[in-house]
C-alpha cells in the first residue's frame, strides 16, 4: 500500500497486540469465487490488494482508492461493495465474487456478453467493476428503467463516457430475465 499520499506521516508507533487480536500480521481465510484461500497478510491490506497481490485476481481495479469510482467493485455475500475501502481481515466468513468468478468456464456471463454486444466500453479499465455492479443492480431490482439504471449505477464512473451503451447492456440483460 502506497504511503505516497501523505508524506507528513509519522513513523509507525510500536503497538502491543490486543489480548486476542491480530497484529501486525493476520492469518485469515478468504473465500473467493467458491474457493477458500488460507493467507497471512498485514492487517492493513485492503480486500482489493489481497485479491490482486495475494491471489493474482487482477480483474477488480484500483482507481480512486476512496470509494468514489467503483472500479474495485466486488460482491460480498452477494452485495456489491467497494473492495478498496474493505479490509481483507474483516471479510473472513464471507463469500467474495469477483469478475473472474462470473463466467461458467468458456461461457461468458450474460452481462459480459451484453457489454461486448452493446460496445459498452472503450479503454475497459472500469469494465470489471461496471459488470459486477450491473449484475447486482438487476438482482436488487433496480434496473426497471434507463433512469433507474443510471441512478443505481452512479457508483461506477467511466472516464471514456460509455454510459449510454452501458445502460443499454444492463437493459438488455434485465429484459432477458435478469442476471
Amino acid at each position: 500500500m502506497s504511503e505516497a499520499h501523505h508524506p507528513a506521516a509519522a513513523p509507525p508507533r510500536a503497538v502491543p497486540p490486543a489480548p486476542d487480536g491480530d497484529w501486525p500480521i493476520a492469518t485469515l481465510t478468504l473465500r473467493v469465487n467458491g474457493q477458500a484461500h488460507r493467507l497471512a497478510m498485514d492487517t492493513r491490506t485492503t480486500l482489493l490488494d489481497a485479491l490482486r497481490d495475494h491471489l493474482g485476481l487482477t480483474g477488480a481495479k484500483p482507481g480512486c482508492n476512496q470509494g468514489a469510482c467503483g472500479a474495485c467493485t466486488v460482491l460480498i455475500d452477494g452485495k456489491r461493495m467497494n473492495a478498496c475501502l474493505t479490509l481483507a481481515v474483516a471479510t473472513q466468513g464471507q463469500e467474495i465474487t469477483t469478475i473472474e468468478g462470473l463466467a461458467e468456464g468458456e461461457a461468458l456471463h450474460p452481462m459480459q456478453q451484453a457489454f461486448i454486444d452493446h460496445d459498452a466500453f472503450q479503454c475497459g479499465y472500469c469494465t470489471p467493476g461496471q459488470i459486477i455492479s450491473a449484475v447486482a443492480c438487476i438482482r436488487e431490482g433496480h434496473a426497471g428503467s434507463a433512469e433507474e439504471i443510471r441512478e443505481f449505477m452512479s457508483g461506477n464512473l467511466c472516464r471514456c463516457g460509455a454510459y449510454p451503451n452501458i445502460v443499454k447492456a444492463v437493459q438488455d440483460v434485465a429484459a432477458k430475465g435478469g442476471a
Binding site: M1, E3, G21, W23
Partner: peptide, 9 residues
C-alpha cells in the same frame, strides 16, 4: 497507513 491491531468483537 499506520499499523493497527485488529479484533473482531
Amino acid at each position: 497507513m499506520q499499523p493497527f491491531a485488529y479484533h473482531r468483537a
